[in-house]
Amino acid sequence: MRDALGSVQSVLVLGGNSEIALAIVDRLVASRCKKVVLGVRSPASATATLNRLRSAGVDADTIVFDALDAASHTKVIDAAAARMGDIDMVILAFGILDGHSEIDTDPVFAAQVVQTNFGGAVSAGLASAVQLRKQGHGTILSITSVAGVRARAENMIYASSKAGMDSFSQALGDALIGTGARCVVVRPGFVHTHMTEGMKPAPFATTPDKIADTVINGLQKNKEIIWAPSIMMPMFLTLRHLPRFLWRKVSAT
């Protein structure tokens, strides 16, 4: 169960190798969380994390999860629920980041990015919602991106897929009002991770640990949308409304 300060006792991470998600999990575990299931494409990739969590006394496990295999998502959620009982929190943390302009000439890969980031979030999000409704409680923590607030020419596929995910997550949250379940959107700015290695950092670039601190604080304050770092909110609410000719200039720099 979630407590009054936003701590949970069990968590399922879809995209169980996400550095941001794992930083959040570390904090949840330091508070009340005793059960963790990591949904990953290849369980071997999460061995180190698993060992670390287990040595901290957490009942941790992995489960095979492939964002592109929508047909399996309900089974994944059911298996996670069978493994740990009530799922207090599902973190949607999978995704592909493309920072390269080559993608413009690779429509198949571009479609795969969208399928993963947006399509996968929709099917996994809906499958999770069914379980959380049945439980009468639980939080879907949907990690989108400030990139989704306004797409740039340079990251159009990633940004638009995250825009879809963000939009879906907000509406899912609205659909869950009154059920005890909810969907909280996290919008990180630029984060230094393996995913962004070699990319030019955007202003206010931050780390998974700092993002996680902001998320924990947002959960405690019962926020529906968590901007991380919080400066992203005024910044992107402004950027979103720039005239296009200005946005082109700003976003190209």
Partner: peptide
């Protein structure tokens, strides 16, 4: 009917 309930502190509601 299903509705969301919370305690006097208005934290951590759940559906029942």
């Amino acid at each position: 009917s299903s509705s969301e309930l919370f305690g006097w502190g208005r934290t951590a509601p759940s559906g029942a």
